[in-house]
Design a protein around this nucleic acid. Structure first.
Lengths: 152, 152
DNA sequence: CCCGATGAGTTGCGGATTGAAACCATCATG
DNA sequence: CATGATGGTTTCAATCCGCAACTCATCGGG
């Protein structure tokens, strides 16, 4: 099937032209990105995802299946024992920038000033600096300085 | 009320500690980020959002109300005529990096190789370069090189 | 002033999705 | 063999969503 060769599922895309819309068709629901977040933070097993997210088990079951079907997670038997394991694929791993910008936006706008929240740090313990979109000339990019060019 | 002073709504957060989860509580549904995307691309009116997204009118009505209530959009009467206008607040505007990383991820992973898609360009027409998270020392950041430090 | 068009929603309704809890099968351990 | 952990599935009620129809106000002619 074409999925195997392209890596891209054949969905009824909400808006087939727009990469934002396609991305949201894959991970734009209440839980998928939280599952991805926890996978990035070391969760592997069904029970561990359930414990960390608090998601209902039937929904988690469905989300894991979808994420596997869409190539964001890979399911495999754990080396020892009879456990399942869900690990990020390259595509799933590559959502790091998305989760990070969401995190940084949340830190700026979803907490009251002075309210405590968790922080992402690098291996030396230094806080990760904020991502700022820059153009090829190094200037800051913005809603006003960019626009979408239609696909050819 | 406290909302006015903090700018942060009082929801039942899915996971109150985690900025990612809070961000998703605000914009983590199928439509909100598409509305934001279209607002960034110049949409202002109810009908225009409806036309661009294809969302059901009652749902759009609800989403616009939520986004206004959460401080991502501001509603005001249009200068001339008797129309309503929805414009991005600073917080909404600041979602640019989130929408951009989603877009770039979608371009990489939600299209078959060679499949056409729209492109984001700067004011000179040059494609916007890909965002890559870097640490304070300039090295590329990654799931493996970062971790969450719990809030104090 | 009356008519139709447009904008901005609201309402009603059937079908799809979600959430909570219970249930089940397989293994591992004592 | 009883118990617990793991990885789900089933059931059922509550909620949400999409569609279509309807309201209500304004605007632009004629």
């Amino acid at each position: 099937m074409s999925l195997a060769t392209t890596g891209v599922p054949n969905l009824d895309w909400t808006d087939p032209e727009c990469p934002v819309a396609r991305a949201l068709d894959l991970v734009g629901d209440r839980w998928s990105l939280l599952v991805i977040r926890d996978a990035m933070d070391g969760a592997r097993s069904f029970t561990e995802f359930q414990r960390r997210t608090g998601i209902a088990r039937n929904i988690l079951s469905d989300r894991l299946r979808r994420l596997v079907a869409h190539g964001l997670l890979a399911q495999r038997a754990a080396p020892s024992g009879r456990r399942q394991e869900y690990v990020l694929t390259d595509a799933g791993h590559d959502l790091f920038a998305v989760v990070l910008t969401l995190r940084q936006w949340g830190e700026r706008h979803a907490f009251a000033p002075g309210e405590a929240h968790s922080v992402l740090v690098d291996r030396h313990g230094a806080p990760v600096p904020e991502i700022a979109p820059t153009g090829s000339d190094g200037t800051l990019l913005d809603t006003d300085t960019t626009h979408v060019r239609k696909s050819r």
